[in-house]
Computed example of a mutant assay.
Amino acid sequence: MKKILVTGATGQLGSELKVLSENYWQYEWVFADRTQVSLDHLSKLKIQLELIRPNVILNCGAYTAVDKAESENELADIVNHQAVKVIAQYANYNQAKLIHISTDYVFDGTSSTALTEEATTQPINVYGATKRAGELACLEVNSNTIIIRTSWVYSRFGNNFVKTMQRLLKERDSISVVNDQVGSPTYAADLAKAMMDIVSAKEWIPGIYNYSNEGEISWYEFVLAIQEIGGYSCDVKGIPSASYPTPAKRPAFSLLDKSEIKAVYGVEVPGYLSSLRKCMDLL
């Protein structure tokens, strides 16, 4: 029986994979949190991988505190770059399959058309730079890796934008949301399903793939959709990013082109509204 290791098991994507794993009983699953697979401790990580001996690794663990990464750049680099290299080396030496999750933050946000996998990367913050370094390390030591870039991830699990907005829409009379950052949200349950479609596919075709839900919206429009589905009466105002300064710069445009993952793996990509409704029903 093949063994699947999921890193970052208590995060949004790891939690959705745990739910989904019940449909994939043909695999032995290992859901590892940061104590079982220490992405911040490289020598320990090597030993842990050798003890678990997975045939498939779904690397969902990452340092994702985008603003905090600006001051904790060394830790972000260890988790998002150096640990990824260790995992990719293990996968290479042991002929294990590796799916590594990356981000739209590898781009600078100056594009005006949906970004393909070949688009030029140029991160504008520490988080994006460490994730890009992780991608490059992966591909350098293990050409058989699959990297999935995703964006604006949310779920019924963990802390995320949808949950925060639901709370604020209930509690406040008015909120302001940036309206000049454009992309598409990703329901983590949909991404988990796409990952398992790849794992189950007849042929393993390595490379970089994009995955987010269909649709092109701003954060402001995303909140309007949350408001409509939830029936909240709060006044939502759109503001420019300049009015809401953060330690880390965000890409203004990071819409991902999903045609590659659809063509190669036949992955289904739902529209963002139907997936948002599904998630909010569960919440």
Rank of each mutant, 00 (worst) to 15 (best):
K2Q: 14
L5T: 05
L5M: 09
L5A: 07
T7I: 03
G11Y: 02
Q12E: 13
L13D: 02
S15N: 08
L17G: 00
K18W: 10
L20Q: 09
E22K: 14
Q26I: 11
Y27V: 02
E28G: 12
W29V: 05
F31Q: 04
A32V: 05
D33C: 05
D33N: 14
R34P: 02
T35K: 12
Q36R: 12
Q36P: 00
L42T: 07
L42W: 05
S43M: 09
L45A: 06
Q48P: 00
E50C: 08
E50G: 11
L51P: 00
I52Q: 03
R53G: 14
L58Q: 00
G61F: 06
T64R: 10
V66I: 15
K68A: 12
A69K: 03
E70C: 01
H81R: 08
Q82D: 12
Q82A: 08
V84F: 09
I87K: 01
Q89G: 04
Q89T: 15
N92H: 09
A96H: 02
I99C: 00
I101P: 00
Y105L: 09
Y105R: 01
Y105D: 04
G109H: 01
S111K: 06
S112Y: 15
A114K: 10
T120N: 10
Q122Y: 08
Q122L: 11
Q122H: 14
Q122K: 14
P123H: 02
I124C: 06
V126T: 15
R132F: 12
A133I: 04
E135Y: 05
E135P: 07
L136R: 13
L136S: 11
L136C: 07
A137D: 10
L139E: 15
L139T: 13
V141E: 08
N142I: 07
N142T: 12
S143A: 15
I147M: 07
I148R: 01
S151I: 08
S151R: 00
W152T: 01
R156W: 10
F157L: 08
N159K: 13
F161I: 12
V162W: 01
K163F: 08
M165W: 13
M165S: 08
R167C: 11
K170M: 15
K170D: 14
R172Q: 14
I175P: 02
S176F: 11
N179D: 15
D180P: 05
P185I: 07
Y187K: 03
A192Y: 02
K193E: 12
A194T: 09
A194G: 09
D197C: 03
I198E: 00
W204N: 06
I205H: 09
P206R: 03
G207Y: 03
N210K: 05
N210C: 10
Y211D: 01
Y211T: 04
N213C: 14
N213S: 11
E214F: 02
E214T: 12
I217S: 00
W219F: 15
E228G: 06
I229A: 03
G231T: 08
Y232H: 12
S233Q: 13
C234W: 04
C234I: 08
C234M: 06
D235A: 13
S241R: 08
S243N: 11
K249C: 03
R250G: 01
A252D: 05
F253S: 00
L255I: 09
L255V: 13
L256H: 01
E260T: 15
A263P: 03
V269N: 01
S275W: 00
L276I: 07
R277M: 10
D281R: 10
D281T: 14
